[in-house]
Amino acid sequence: MTVLLQDVIDEIDLIDDPNARKQPLPDDALIAKYEQAIGFTFPDDYKLLLKTVSNAFVGYISPFTLNEQLLEEYGDLRVGVDEGRKVGVPQDWLPICEDNGDYYCIAPDGSVRFWDHNGSSSESWSTLAVWAKEVWLEVNLHHAHLKKRYKNLNSARRKNPSIARIKCVTVFRGRSVINLPSR
Score class of each variant (00 low, 15 high):
122 S>R: 01
137 L>T: 01
111 S>Q: 15
125 W>C: 02
102 D>C: 12
114 F>P: 04
119 G>C: 06
131 W>R: 02
127 T>K: 05
133 K>T: 02
129 A>S: 04
110 G>I: 08
127 T>G: 05
116 D>S: 15
133 K>L: 05
118 N>Q: 14
134 E>Q: 05
117 H>N: 12
125 W>D: 06
104 Y>T: 13
129 A>Y: 04
131 W>C: 00
127 T>A: 03
133 K>Q: 09
130 V>H: 05
117 H>W: 11
137 L>V: 04
109 D>A: 10
112 V>K: 12
119 G>R: 02
121 S>M: 02
115 W>L: 03
138 E>L: 02
106 I>V: 14
127 T>Y: 07
109 D>L: 05
115 W>K: 03
121 S>Y: 00
118 N>M: 14
111 S>W: 12
116 D>V: 08
105 C>G: 10
105 C>M: 10
125 W>H: 06
108 P>I: 15
112 V>S: 14
108 P>W: 15
103 Y>H: 10
101 G>K: 13
119 G>K: 02
102 D>L: 00
132 A>G: 02
101 G>I: 12
134 E>I: 00
134 E>D: 05
100 N>I: 15
124 S>F: 07
130 V>D: 03
121 S>V: 01
135 V>P: 01
111 S>E: 12
118 N>C: 11
122 S>A: 13
128 L>R: 08
110 G>Y: 14
106 I>S: 09
121 S>I: 04
121 S>F: 01
109 D>C: 07
138 E>Y: 01
122 S>T: 04
